[in-house]
Amino acid sequence: MSIQAIEDRKVKPLPAPAKPAEIIAFTARARRRFDPAAIAGKLARTLVPPVIVITIMLVVWQVACSSPTASLPPPSQVWNEAYDLIAHPFFDNGPQDIGLAWRVLMSLQRVAMGFGLAAIVGVALGALVGQSIWAMRGLDPVFQILRTVPPLAWLPLSLAAFRDSSPSAIFVIFITSIWPVIINTAVGVRNIPEDYRNVARILRLNQFEFFVKIMVPAAAPYIFTGLRIGIGLSWLAIVAAEMLTGGVGIGFFIWDAWNSSRLPDIIVALAYIGVTGFCLDRLVAAVGAFVTRGTTAK
């Protein structure tokens, strides 16, 4: 490019923009469009691996239990003999001949009562232990010893005290699931930042206001960790407790099936218990995630 060419091209000021620059607000997030390919891909990624693993397990199980001398039924026999239980979870043919879903619901009812009580009492006791150094010194050793007692060891005592199977089962659930709630709540309360306490002191919040407005929300992530462990333990405990107390529930069903040598029924019941336990765990986790949104972020 010659010098002449440069001179020719006169420097012109940029034309003033016809209108002021438009301000485009960014939306918080580009809206996700419905994309069948992406959804199918995601489904495949999450579903295919477990399906393959389960298929392999079923095949191995089938092969291992197919010999006439096998002590456990293969999956095909479970399917044939317990088809009613698998296909109709809600049938009701009178007392003691009901679908497994009803039995699970009965157990869940007990868990709801025992665990609900444990959650309320556990959070209250945990708050006390976390808040007061003397309560901690006095109660913590007791808690640490009692929490190691296996759930079923409480059962004879509670049967003696309540003289009835249902409250005894509920008590066993309560006493099993309360420890992680207490301990985690106490840790959460102890970890409340000093600044939040100072804010409360400057505002002169009373004990109740402090508990509701500062302590519970601040400790919520810890509380929900405790609740999640607690619900898992109480589901473990209810099945064992019902096996011993009898009468109703999924635990009793397993014991009953064992006494009448209906092994396929037991296997189906195990699947029910596993799926229910999984759902309970996810339920508490989801509630926790909803309640504590924003709390963990600084």
Binding site: D195, N198, V199, I202, R204, A218
Partner: peptide, 29 residues
Amino acid sequence: DSPGPERAVVFQNHSLLPWLTVYENINLA
């Protein structure tokens, strides 16, 4: 000899309660 709202403190690290909105934080006070 005790804290109170007539001597309000602005803390170095703001000390807003993270589970409340801006409005709710002030509303609490």
